[in-house]
Simulated scan of single mutants.
Amino acid sequence: MHRIALISLPLAALLALTGCGSDSKPKAAKPTAAAGADCGKVDAAGGAPAYLKVTKGSASCTEAVSVYKAFFAEIAEGKAPGQGSGGELSVQGWSCVIYPPDQIQQNGRGADCTKSGATVSAFQKAG
Rank of each mutant, 00 (worst) to 15 (best):
G21L: 03
A76M: 05
A16K: 01
K56T: 13
G46W: 03
Q106F: 12
G40N: 09
G82H: 05
C61Y: 00
I98Q: 11
C113N: 10
T55R: 03
V65D: 05
T62R: 04
G84A: 02
L11C: 14
P31N: 01
A50I: 00
K41R: 14
A48G: 10
A73K: 13
K41T: 15
V42I: 14
K79V: 02
I104M: 04
C96I: 06
A48P: 01
S90Q: 12
G110C: 06
P31Q: 01
L6Y: 07
I7G: 06
K69G: 10
L89Q: 09
A118N: 01
A59F: 00
D23K: 11
I75N: 10
K125I: 11
V65W: 00
S121Q: 09
D102L: 06
Y68S: 06
A122E: 09
G82K: 01
T55W: 04
A33N: 08
G46A: 14
S121L: 07
A70D: 14
A45M: 07
S85I: 07
P81R: 00
P31L: 01
P81H: 00
S22N: 13
S24L: 10
K25I: 15
G84F: 01
A29I: 04
V65R: 12
Q92R: 13
C96L: 04
Q83N: 13
I75T: 13
S121A: 14
S22C: 10
W94E: 02
S85T: 12
P31D: 02
G93H: 03
K56F: 02
A45F: 07
A28D: 11
V42A: 05
G36T: 10
T55K: 03
L6M: 12
F71T: 05
L6R: 13
P49N: 00
L15Q: 08
T114S: 15
A16F: 09
G57I: 03
C61S: 00
H2Y: 08
T55V: 14
T55F: 04
G36R: 06
G127N: 11
F123K: 10
P81L: 00
A29S: 11
K53E: 14
T62V: 12
A48E: 11
I98A: 14
A45P: 09
T62L: 06
A44Q: 03
L9N: 02
A122P: 11
T114G: 09
V97Y: 00
A44I: 00
S66C: 05
C39A: 08
K115R: 15
A28N: 08
A12F: 13
S24E: 12
D38A: 15
L9H: 03
L11T: 13
H2Q: 11
A111I: 07
P26C: 05
G110D: 05
L11V: 15
A64C: 07
K115C: 07
T55Y: 05
A73Q: 11
Y68R: 06
L89F: 03
Q124G: 15
A76S: 14
E77R: 15
M1H: 08
P100S: 06
A122G: 10
V65G: 06
L11M: 13
A33M: 07
Q103P: 05
S22A: 15
Q83W: 12
C96D: 02
K115Y: 04
I7E: 08
A29M: 09
C39V: 11
P100I: 04
V65A: 09
A80W: 00
A73R: 07
P81W: 00
Q92F: 03
Q92W: 00
R3Y: 10
Q105F: 06
L9I: 13
A50M: 08
Q124M: 13
